[in-house]
Simulated assay, not measured.
Amino acid sequence: MRLSVVLSIIAVWGFALVNDSGLGKLFYTEEKMNWLIVICSIYLWGIRKRTFIPKMRIDIVLCFLLFFIFIPYFISNGWDGATYLISFLTIFCFSNINISSRELTVSSLVIGFLGIGLITVYQKTGILSGWNDNSIAMLTLFSYIYFSIFFNSVKGYYARLLCLIVSLVYYIMILGTESRGAALFMSLSILLMLTKNYTWEMLKKNKVRFLVIHFPLIIAVMTVWISEQSWFPELDRLYQIEHTKPIFNGRDRIWGNVFNQMMEYPFGVGEFNVNHHNSAIACIGVFGIIGYIIWCNFFQRQLSKMSEHLYDSIVYACMCAFIVIFIQQSTELGFIRPCPNMMPYMILGLGLGRVRWYEEHEKIYE
């Protein structure tokens, strides 16, 4: 087992914990993390001559540079797009790791118990009292989803029983937060674990993967449409009497404003000046509709490549974990921003690392 692989995974979790905190601002952890990723990428690309998998054509690279860096800089005089694209370098770095079953087991257990420790400390002590409740819930959810990779790849009866017990503990703890979405998507993650035989076949279909990639946009369009119906204000009023906050909690207005501004800002506003609570809307609002198409195409190609190797339990587990987070970002934030939570990008990279290993060895035996 390579200790460096396990420590790298734990480091990503640690950065996700502190980056948005006062401690992170004090020690500039976002900037340090970004430089580590950039240096690692330069080493892999410049010295070891590694490439993305699937390999990115030069025209795609130029489109990313144009619509995610140069045009946003021209519009807003800022580098939000450039710092966001470092998340893609995270995929690149971790896709050069062929993680072993033992490394996956150890890192999954460590991250899983770190997540439980985090939510326990937050709920039972005042150490993290100044932290955002939703951020804690999201990192707890991402910790559990990474732990679920181990659940999806393990076959022993007692190991799966342990996973179910840990899942139950997680679910009870996360219900104590104010995040409705975290509990919902944890349930979805458990469902994917228990229906592997059916999910495995579904993920092979192009239409299913297309729906997954565009799911956040579909949710946004449906939400805005519902909020504009004549009967909605009364329904929303009744809901607020029971739950003290609106059904969509203001997301319908944010998403509607982005749709209304598409003609005025066809290339986006160039910076993350609003918490969009939806990855598709954030991409359209900041990088425009062309940027959104490029962004979707990138992830579509990644998932399509992984779908060719779903017979590998780790590839399957990583793909399921990434999909749960991607769908979860239909109503939450953290996936697309100047310095996003790198855990979903790391998970995608680890799955692609296994794919790279298979494809490189297939070429050897041809």
Results as ranks from 00 to 15, higher is better:
289 I>E: 08
328 Q>G: 13
327 I>A: 12
329 Q>P: 09
304 S>R: 04
313 S>C: 15
314 I>C: 09
313 S>D: 15
324 V>P: 00
303 L>T: 02
307 S>W: 00
286 V>D: 03
321 A>L: 12
312 D>H: 12
307 S>P: 06
324 V>Q: 07
313 S>M: 12
291 G>D: 08
321 A>Q: 09
329 Q>E: 05
331 T>P: 02
299 F>D: 04
288 G>D: 05
294 I>T: 05
287 F>V: 12
314 I>K: 12
294 I>Y: 05
323 I>P: 00
287 F>E: 08
294 I>C: 04
324 V>G: 02
294 I>H: 05
309 H>N: 13
295 W>R: 01
286 V>P: 01
287 F>N: 06
287 F>G: 09
320 C>K: 09
292 Y>T: 06
288 G>M: 06
290 I>L: 09
292 Y>F: 14
318 C>Q: 05
319 M>S: 02
294 I>G: 01
289 I>V: 13
327 I>N: 08
331 T>W: 14
327 I>L: 14
317 A>V: 10
300 Q>M: 05
306 M>P: 07
308 E>G: 03
285 G>C: 15
289 I>G: 02
289 I>L: 12
327 I>W: 13
309 H>E: 07
288 G>H: 06
325 I>M: 08
302 Q>F: 03
312 D>F: 11
301 R>T: 13
312 D>Q: 11
316 Y>K: 07
304 S>I: 08
293 I>L: 14
303 L>C: 01
298 F>G: 01
305 K>E: 15
313 S>A: 15
287 F>P: 10
317 A>K: 11
329 Q>C: 05
324 V>F: 03
308 E>A: 07
322 F>A: 03
321 A>G: 07
309 H>T: 05
311 Y>R: 13
291 G>Y: 08
296 C>T: 10
317 A>H: 14
304 S>A: 14
319 M>G: 01
317 A>G: 13
329 Q>A: 07
316 Y>F: 15
300 Q>D: 09
331 T>S: 07
314 I>R: 12
288 G>V: 08
329 Q>H: 13
288 G>T: 08
308 E>H: 03
329 Q>N: 11
308 E>V: 00
331 T>H: 06
313 S>Y: 12
325 I>F: 04
330 S>G: 09
313 S>K: 15
312 D>V: 08
286 V>R: 03
300 Q>V: 02
311 Y>N: 14
298 F>V: 02
324 V>E: 09
328 Q>E: 13
301 R>E: 15
326 F>M: 13
328 Q>R: 10
315 V>Q: 03
328 Q>S: 12
310 L>D: 04
331 T>F: 15
293 I>P: 00
298 F>Y: 02
299 F>L: 07
304 S>Q: 13
307 S>Y: 00
290 I>V: 08
